[in-house]
């Protein structure tokens, strides 16, 4: 029961979705299955929210390290949830968009979520710079090729790159840095990315087959193997 039912579900759903591509009358069934999938995805959001509350309530109850910050998480979660579910301050009635201009939900999104989310990633600019200094070494031929390609792209994507080679005559335009950058992207980069893509594509296809045929069972947990 614990293993068989999930296996049957995976095989059934996977098979129907593949067949529905080839047999048009089954297209509607495939659509319905994906619609079910979309609805279950929302329950996954609820699960994520529920788990977050559980973890932080436990942290609070046991007064673990940094427990006062769990209050911040719970308050932030509660206020945002209330603002969204009850559409507090929404200019229209219940039918209006939850993100409508003027609503508390939108206000928190723009003034709390946006600055926090974007600054979190903006920090990476500093770490990329630091990593460039520490780890980007021309130790051998391969690393040097990587370094040269990176330099051309970095320079070629700015006006400085164009300025550096502006003196070149038309007949040598093949060597202008912006041109080289465009060519690297659309030729060697494309070739390398395509080789990777074909490899990943084959990997996804074989893994999908393994799942649908019931060979791959690791997602069922320890007793599912």
């Amino acid at each position: 029961m614990r293993r068989e039912v999930p296996l049957i579900i995976t095989i059934l759903v996977g098979t129907v979705l593949i067949i529905s591509v080839f047999i048009p009358p089954l297209e509607s069934l495939g659509e319905s299955f994906t619609l079910f999938f979309d609805i279950i995805a929302v329950f996954a959001f609820f699960l994520g929210g529920g788990n977050l509350v559980r973890v932080h309530v436990l942290k609070l109850a046991k007064k673990k390290r940094d427990w006062p910050f769990s209050i911040v998480t719970l308050v932030g979660f509660g206020v945002m949830l209330a603002a969204g579910l009850f559409k507090i301050g929404n200019p229209g009635d219940i039918a209006a968009s939850v993100t409508a201009e003027g609503s508390l939900f939108n206000m928190i999104y723009r003034n709390v979520f946006v600055p926090l989310g974007s600054t979190m990633y903006a920090l990476l600019a500093f770490f990329v710079a630091s990593a460039s200094y520490r780890a980007f070494r021309a130790k051998n031929r391969e690393a040097t090729i990587l370094l040269v390609a990176a330099f051309i792209i970095l320079l070629g994507s700015t006006p400085f790159g164009a300025w550096l080679t502006i003196w070149m005559p038309e007949s040598m335009s093949i060597l202008e840095i912006p041109n080289l950058a465009v060519w690297i992207m659309s030729s060697p980069n494309m070739a390398g990315q395509r080789a990777i893509m074909i490899g990943i594509g084959l990997g996804v296809v074989s893994m999908s087959l393994r799942l649908i045929l019931g060979i791959e069972r690791s997602y069922l947990g320890e007793d599912g193997a």
Partner: peptide
């Protein structure tokens, strides 16, 4: 800013090397 930052990062790579 992007242009200047790129030059500075290239400079750091050179200095690191």
């Amino acid at each position: 800013p992007q242009t200047i930052a790129h030059i500075v990062i290239i400079a750091f790579i050179i200095i690191g090397n």
